[in-house]
Design a protein around this nucleic acid. Structure first.
Lengths: 242, 242
DNA sequence: ACAGATTGAATGATATCACATATCTCAGTC
DNA sequence: GACTGAGATATGTGATATCATTCAATCTGT
């Protein structure tokens, strides 16, 4: 056992981690081990491979990744500093269980920042990015048909971040990424077992159209609507859980 | 010598650090060493004790703080991840020299987020916080009279963050703090040697009034104006330097 | 049988050590 | 005199060892 969490899922997760990391990317990269670990953990969080409340231990992950505790601890610390993990004093790191208040807080900030990014993206987006958006959207529709939540969420992430990258602001991109890291586990948990419906795609369609027409305020509106919709759904489902 | 930077200021800075940290805060705190180091470095960055371009070394700071390299390395890494320091591979950490493009980028994001925080603060701010704002403002005026840039900047920071804390969003607060960390060294450097003028206070007066009247959009406007003004001044001065 | 004390295992934090690499210094060479 | 390259030095990074703390299971006394 790599961790002591009650759900007992971490061994499986850890082995997934291990394979993810064991592709050493044999370029001349200046990539440090802790960066690799950090990136792997980010992806795991974003893809919902960790459940809220699950505990992560330094040694457990170090074994899973096949590295020493040092870079793992530093990656965990960085995630904790960003609010993506909760660090309990002298205990373990934990995937945070966020409250509905926090969800709403995040939603407000996301709406402001991602809306701003979308508006900016409308001015600068290139044809290639628009095509990329079309493809991501097509993937989402297919995922809905197959009821494949994982593929849906991956395509959704790709769709959004293609837009945000197009905004050309490194600052915005970093902050938005940090926000997604926080909401990711909870979002993905809730999406895991539901039936995906076509309606979820409306806001994306609107965003796509607005970006194509280079209409900044419409693009903003569409993204904000998407965030609000998902957030409302999330809050509703969280409410039911209690 | 604790570092090898050409300006040769780091020894003095380091000793200032040392005294800052050597007050061990003998509470039962769960505070870790790396957190203490991180906080000290944050404050140093915010107060302009480091110049853009200055290099910081793990071992140098460790000596200055009287701790082992480990917690220092982790604090530096965290700052680098937040964009408050630049990490040069197998070289040293460096206080970033930011471009005017980055300044404008930061300014846009700051305007959106700090404006949002001010608007929210207008709804929720308490009488006690308003008094705190008055005091901070009075300190700023006194600092202008004395031409004391350091006191001015400290009071300015206190003023702004009192507002942002009043907004009641931990998410916003963290992000804004991160943005200030990035802009801090450059901002403080430029303010160090100028003659402070009364006009700098206008936006703060307007913000204070708007918050007192609980007028959210006016409060937003005032804060945005303050950011834009300072940013324009900053860009102008940076332009002159070339 | 039960409540409190105790001990042992697990964990994160820190210190120390080892290593690869980038930069600098300064002979030696053309 | 300028340049090249080997060695020295400084640096961040990663691994390992040790420590303090926490928590839970066990033990003990009533």
């Amino acid at each position: 056992m790599t961790t002591s969490n009650p759900s007992g899922r971490s061994a499986a997760v850890a082995s997934a981690m291990s394979t993810a990391l064991s592709a050493p990317v044999l370029q001349v990269s200046r990539e440090t081990l802790r960066t690799r670990v950090y990136d792997s953990l980010c992806e795991a969080l974003m893809m919902g491979r960790f459940e809220p409340g699950q505990s992560l231990t330094v040694r457990g992950l170090a074994d899973a990744f096949g590295v020493s505790p040092t870079p793992v601890r530093e990656a965990l610390q960085r995630l904790a500093a960003a609010g993506a993990l909760a660090a309990e004093p002298n205990r373990f790191y934990r995937v945070p269980v966020i409250t509905t208040e926090t969800i709403q807080d995040l939603r407000r900030v996301r709406a402001a920042l991602e809306g701003m990014a979308a508006e900016e993206a409308a001015k600068r987006i290139q044809r290639g990015d628009l095509q990329k958006l079309e493809r991501a959207n097509a993937k989402m529709l297919k995922a809905i048909d197959r009821q494949d939540a994982k593929a849906y969420l991956a395509a959704n992430e790709s769709f959004h971040f293609t837009i945000y990258r197009a905004a050309g602001s490194e600052t915005l991109l970093q902050i938005i990424h940090g926000l997604w890291l926080r909401i990711g586990p909870t979002l993905n948990l809730l999406f895991r077992d539901i039936t995906l419906v076509r309606g979820l795609d409306d806001a994306h369609q609107a965003a796509l159209r607005a970006l194509g027409e280079r209409d900044g305020s419409k693009a903003r509106e569409a993204i904000v609507a998407d965030i609000m919709e998902a957030g409302a759904y999330l809050a509703k489902t969280a409410e039911q859980d209690r």
